[in-house]
Amino acid sequence: MTRPLALITGASSGIGAAYARLLAPDADFVLVARRADRLHDLADELRRAGSAAETLPADLATREGIAKVTDRLSAGDVPLLISNAGVGGYAPLIDVDPARIDDLLTLNAEAHVQLVRAALPGMLAADDGTIVTVASLLAFSAGQTGPRPPRRTLYAAAKAATVAFTRTLGHELADTGIRTQVVCPGPVATEFHQGVGQTVPASMTAEDVARASLTGLRLGETICVPGLEDQSAALDALLAAESAVLSGGRRSDLASRYRQPLPK
């Protein structure tokens, strides 16, 4: 029996590697990351476990790296895409080097869209497939102030875009055999937080995040928040708040607070 092929980005360590190890009994792999040496080490480990493993070194913060992976996905033989690669880049916006802004947004937001778009034709032709994007709990943090959340303007914006993208895509694909899920972990014990900005204390293992995601897929979850106990109630409240803003904002007349005379 042919084993499904899973393409995993950010596979050289952390959550990406954890997905690969958990899926190894049942899947073969295309492993994507910047660090070729680590990819080869993981591929050798997976082969010893009985999986076929192809390595594809690529930097998804660059257009060239994205093109390498979208070219591979265009073959149409990947029914499981786990778009996990990302970087923290936590810092106040004023402290972010303008030269890094494009790289940060490309990796944390655009790469997900480009890879999913490349994978979709093959999945739609087969009427079967699974798309997982890895975002962050900080996607929901824009209204939070105080010392606890890290300085995160660009990061939170990119991850919120990934959440919105994956949720909306799920509605577009509702009548197909393709499943979608966006994963929103809190702090995780990985190398992820190295780089610009502050270090965030870790609380959950990468394996726990990957396990929650794969279990959530079996449960039919389109949003997976690994540490959230009463997820259904919280997401129902989020949907109700979104609906209230949308329905209330569709009025053709101004809200009463905007009807006062303009200041002179």
Rank of each mutant, 00 (worst) to 15 (best):
residue 1 M to V: 15
residue 6 A to M: 05
residue 8 I to K: 10
residue 10 G to T: 07
residue 12 S to G: 06
residue 16 G to E: 02
residue 16 G to C: 05
residue 19 Y to A: 02
residue 23 L to R: 08
residue 23 L to Y: 04
residue 25 P to D: 00
residue 30 V to E: 01
residue 33 A to V: 09
residue 43 A to M: 06
residue 47 R to G: 06
residue 48 R to Y: 05
residue 50 G to F: 12
residue 50 G to K: 09
residue 52 A to V: 11
residue 55 T to M: 06
residue 58 A to L: 09
residue 59 D to S: 08
residue 62 T to P: 09
residue 64 E to G: 11
residue 71 D to T: 15
residue 71 D to R: 15
residue 72 R to Y: 08
residue 72 R to S: 06
residue 73 L to Q: 04
residue 77 D to S: 11
residue 78 V to Q: 06
residue 81 L to W: 07
residue 81 L to A: 05
residue 84 N to E: 01
residue 84 N to C: 06
residue 89 G to K: 10
residue 90 Y to G: 00
residue 96 V to H: 05
residue 97 D to C: 04
residue 99 A to C: 00
residue 104 L to T: 03
residue 105 L to H: 09
residue 111 A to F: 10
residue 113 V to W: 13
residue 115 L to V: 09
residue 123 M to E: 03
residue 124 L to A: 09
residue 126 A to G: 10
residue 127 D to H: 14
residue 137 L to W: 13
residue 141 S to Y: 14
residue 143 G to W: 11
residue 144 Q to Y: 11
residue 149 P to E: 00
residue 152 R to E: 03
residue 152 R to Y: 04
residue 152 R to D: 04
residue 153 T to A: 14
residue 153 T to Q: 08
residue 158 A to R: 07
residue 158 A to Y: 11
residue 158 A to V: 05
residue 162 T to E: 09
residue 163 V to A: 01
residue 164 A to F: 11
residue 167 R to H: 09
residue 171 H to S: 02
residue 173 L to K: 10
residue 174 A to R: 14
residue 175 D to R: 13
residue 175 D to Q: 14
residue 175 D to A: 10
residue 177 G to V: 11
residue 178 I to G: 00
residue 179 R to H: 12
residue 179 R to E: 02
residue 181 Q to F: 05
residue 183 V to N: 03
residue 184 C to V: 11
residue 185 P to G: 00
residue 185 P to T: 07
residue 189 A to T: 13
residue 190 T to M: 07
residue 191 E to N: 14
residue 193 H to Q: 14
residue 200 V to Q: 03
residue 201 P to A: 03
residue 202 A to S: 13
residue 204 M to W: 12
residue 207 E to W: 08
residue 208 D to Q: 15
residue 208 D to I: 03
residue 209 V to C: 01
residue 210 A to W: 12
residue 214 L to C: 03
residue 215 T to S: 05
residue 217 L to C: 03
residue 217 L to S: 04
residue 219 L to K: 15
residue 221 E to K: 15
residue 222 T to P: 09
residue 224 C to P: 06
residue 224 C to A: 08
residue 224 C to M: 12
residue 242 E to A: 05
residue 243 S to M: 06
residue 245 V to K: 08
residue 247 S to G: 00
residue 253 D to N: 02
residue 254 L to Q: 02
residue 255 A to S: 09
residue 258 Y to E: 00
